[in-house]
Design a protein around this nucleic acid. Sequence first.
DNA 1: CGGAATCCTAACCGATACTG
DNA 2: CAGTATCGGTTAGGATTCCG
Lengths: 143, 143
Amino acid sequence: MPTRTAAEKRAQAREEYDAFLAGCPSRQLLDRISDKWVALILAALGRDGPDRDAGPQVMRYSELSRRLAGVSQKMLTQTLRSLERDGLVIRTVTPSVPVTVTYELTGLGQSLHQLMYGMKLWAEAHMDEVHANRERYDTAAQR
Amino acid sequence: MPTRTAAEKRAQAREEYDAFLAGCPSRQLLDRISDKWVALILAALGRDGPDRDAGPQVMRYSELSRRLAGVSQKMLTQTLRSLERDGLVIRTVTPSVPVTVTYELTGLGQSLHQLMYGMKLWAEAHMDEVHANRERYDTAAQR
DNA sequence: CGGAATCCTAACCGATACTG
DNA sequence: CAGTATCGGTTAGGATTCCG
């Protein structure tokens, strides 16, 4: 039985990997995906909100660059490369003049997209509350 | 109507905050929570897996330190402070000799815990697949 | 258009020593 | 036990320049 369900995969992973352990490869993977740009790229390349059920999202490099306001081209390229290497995104080069490069999520990338989009929503939804907490904490420390 | 549902909060946040925008506070918040130690601390302080339905998780500093193998005391303290400031964890000092300090999630922290625990599980469940993708990518680049 | 390569600085972060 | 403080090496990542 070579194919395993997601539940079986989790069950086996629980035996093999534990991100709480320092040397565990999953710890490094967690570190890798715990990144602002990873979150925003994955969020941008998925279909959510108004785009739900619209098929796979395909974006050009320049589109991504504009969507993720403020990202340097170094960070964008570097992050996209590592996502491609990990099999989360597919990079497609169309040899036109000038060249066109598009990015889209793989199935694996889609599975992570859900979580990343959730993080982005969480940050937006709880910004006010966090801000209030910070003010309370800072003024309390004042006295 | 001062109290809003989670859905209403998201709806309003969608108007006010957008982490895709560079200057948006939610972008910084997303950056803040996109952190390996934040993920592991939030994951450790929640009730999941075998601990489900067991009430709120309370851990001492030293327990956390042991659970998050390899964390330096500087990073642990620093991350816990920022989580406390943001209102995600509660820090309780019991003035015994020597002093006892415990940490637990707030409601806000619980809401993020779900996502963070999901990220940890994702990393563990897909480690093999990512590893295989990397090997394929690296050997393909070889030629 | 979509990068790669280089330089350079700010920050991160671990190690160490000290403390209530 | 649970920190704080300081130092110093490493790295992240922006700015700039050049290229197919």
